[in-house]
Design a protein around this nucleic acid. Structure first.
Lengths: 188, 188
DNA sequence: TCGATGGGAGAACGATCGTTCTCCGTCATG
DNA sequence: CATGACGGAGAACGATCGTTCTCCCATCGA
């Protein structure tokens, strides 16, 4: 078995477990068992649990970025691309493994005691806002629209997570339509 | 010293510590020292840590509800009352102790392993959405507007917490103005 | 003054966590 | 076949946590 394959399997397993139970609730032994890797191998690949946490965050960032971008590219118009963000949220919320944004959760759990985690979560959210900013600019909207749509997306994630229902995605999408149309009509 | 005064001091101290460091990062000994109470007294007042956590959540719910309602009552018009929600968020975000919504944080930290915490967070968010629903109805807006404004408020909280900046409150308020005006003009 | 009561400080206990170490079987190589 | 390196399973270790127990002193009524 490839060394990198073991790393991938460890990180993928940790991602699932941390998402389902929270980071602090999952011990190294549980991760070891679930990943089917010996403890020695585990510490051979990662020097500590916190390094696994950071690797999981990187994996989540890539999965989010790639999945969102793929969904956005399906849309034909710039306006449709902005709305595709909320379609992506909707299909995400409908997965039964959905338990809220992993960055919000990890920030809430470890942000106060781990500057690494806090910085990475901040960077992830900043990159999302920049991404929405680019789409907004292409659609001819003002920067404040990007901030507003980003806030809507954030709120939809936490609302859907706590309520346990995917309804927030559709409601946020409706709000996005109103905000986009209002911004584009006054901008022109 | 009154018995209830000790309870209040314990819960107030736990609220501060849990908010600043997260629940799982604060041990009973640290709480005992910060509250200036003996460990025996602590367990005389509360049977376990989880009961303290629930008491903190109740305290947070009351503080949120009372503070928000007081701010809303300052507004003269129903439309102003809806916007007052975001003024309340703004002044909250500007406090240097702000570290995100305590219910979102506790849900992220313990929701997966503690049904009590998850249920209480769900109930708190549901009561907020009902409150916004009442204000929206008084303003003559449709139910979907209440859901959208609630999502905006949620998103502002997480965005402000992770970004470490209170800007999201003003941006969400601007979005609320657009959504409210659009909903009220089409509703009439 | 004396003895009982109650509360404070913190030691102790069992569990669990992250991390390291030990033992043992296996396999490759001469 | 002998030997030595390697990897897996899990015991062990130190730290920390929630919780309980023990000791001691201070107070108060008789």
């Amino acid at each position: 078995m490839e060394v990198s394959e073991i790393r991938t399997r460890i990180v993928a397993t940790a991602d699932e477990l941390y998402n389902a139970k929270g980071i602090q609730s999952v011990g190294m032994d549980e991760l070891r068992t679930a990943a089917g890797v010996s403890l020695k191998r585990l510490y051979q690949e990662f020097p500590s649990k916190s390094s696994i946490v950071m690797a999981v965050l990187e994996r989540r960032h890539e999965a989010w970025t790639d999945g969102l971008d793929a969904k956005v590219r399906e849309a034909a118009t710039p306006r449709g691309q902005l709305l595709a963000i909320f379609d992506y949220l909707s299909q995400w919320f409908c997965q039964d493994t959905f338990r809220g944004c992993g960055f919000i959760n990890s920030f809430a759990e470890l942000g106060a005691v781990s500057p690494e985690v806090a910085d990475y979560a901040r960077g992830h959210k900043a990159s999302f806002q920049e991404y929405v900013g680019r789409l907004t600019k292409e659609a001819g909207g003002p920067p404040v629209l990007a901030a507003q749509l980003s806030i809507l997306a954030e709120g939809a994630q936490t609302t859907a997570a706590i309520a346990g229902s995917p309804d927030a995605a559709g409601q946020a999408r409706q709000a996005a339509v109103v905000l986009i149309d209002a911004a584009l009509s006054t901008a022109s």
